[in-house]
Simulated scan of single mutants.
Amino acid sequence: MKRAVILIFIFLCQFSFGQVQDSIKAKVPFENRYGQTKIFNCLRTGIGFQKSFQTEIGYSRMKYTTGCTGFFSKTYYSSLEYIPETANFDDVFGLKVGLEYNLSIIAVALEAKYQTDFVTKDFVITPKIGVGLSYINLFYGYTISTNKNPFPNFGNHQISLIINLPLTSKNQTQ
């Protein structure tokens, strides 16, 4: 009985590995099997909260790839950030650059930002994680200051909603 089970197992393994080609791949044209890649130039807008309201506007360049397993995107961006004055603090302006990756609905990002109120200045790095669909992302970020958080109206925890609005696009050949 033990030998019969082993022989059946070996026979089934040989039969399954003996297929010449995958029947599904044979019916799908080559270019559709691996997806399409488009490059978008986008207007980047965003709002967020980090103990105080913040908004941003800028430019982003997104490489968006679709395929039979879902989508993937990589976005480089640069934007200007504005944090309006509060009762005790002046307006704060920031210049930031960053990189975002999306894989299906999971989004990760890393950004570097120089911020100032024209008296005090700071350079911060913010790793982010969130959910999104490449064009629109909701992030949680943890801000790491290089100057011991000189702006008390900012916290270390940041929630932001980012929208990349495509302006132009072009196909990229694989």
Results as ranks from 00 to 15, higher is better:
I136N: 05
D117T: 15
Y135M: 10
T116E: 04
S104E: 09
G98L: 03
L110E: 02
S134W: 00
Y135Q: 13
F118H: 09
L133D: 06
S134I: 00
D117R: 10
F123Q: 03
S104T: 07
L103A: 10
T116H: 07
F123R: 01
A109M: 02
K128C: 05
I129N: 00
T120W: 05
I125E: 02
V131A: 09
I105N: 12
S104G: 04
E100Y: 03
T116P: 08
I125N: 04
G98C: 11
G130K: 03
D122Y: 02
D122W: 02
L103H: 14
G132L: 03
I106N: 12
S104F: 08
T126R: 01
E111Q: 08
I105F: 14
T126W: 02
V124L: 03
K113D: 02
I129D: 04
T120P: 01
E111C: 04
L103P: 02
T116C: 07
F123N: 05
Y101M: 06
V119D: 10
L110W: 02
A107V: 08
T116W: 05
T120G: 08
S134G: 06
G98F: 03
E100S: 13
K128E: 01
Q115H: 14
N102P: 11
V131Q: 06
I105C: 07
E100D: 12
A107I: 04
I125Q: 07
S134E: 01
T126H: 05
P127Q: 13
E100F: 09
N102Q: 14
N102E: 13
L133F: 14
V131I: 15
P127L: 07
A107L: 07
I136E: 02
F118G: 02
I105D: 10
T116R: 00
T120D: 10
A112M: 08
Q115F: 10
D122T: 10
I129Q: 06
A112Y: 08
D117K: 14
Y114P: 04
K121T: 11
V108M: 07
K128D: 01
K113M: 11
I129L: 12
V119I: 15
L103I: 11
A107N: 07
I105E: 07
F123L: 10
N102D: 15
A109I: 00
G132I: 04
F123T: 11
Q115K: 12
L99K: 13
L103Q: 15
I105M: 14
L133S: 08
P127F: 07
V108C: 14
G130A: 12
Y101W: 11
V108H: 01
V108E: 05
S104N: 15
L133N: 10
I136M: 13
Q115A: 13
K113V: 07
Q115D: 05
Y114R: 10
G98A: 00
I129C: 09
L110G: 08
L99A: 10
D117Y: 07
S104K: 13
L133H: 01
A112H: 06
T126P: 05
L110K: 02
I106S: 04
V97P: 04
A109S: 11
P127T: 06
I106W: 06
F118T: 11
I136C: 11
V97Q: 01
G98I: 05
V108Q: 00
V108N: 01
L103K: 13
I129A: 15
V131S: 08
S134P: 04
D122M: 11
Y135F: 13
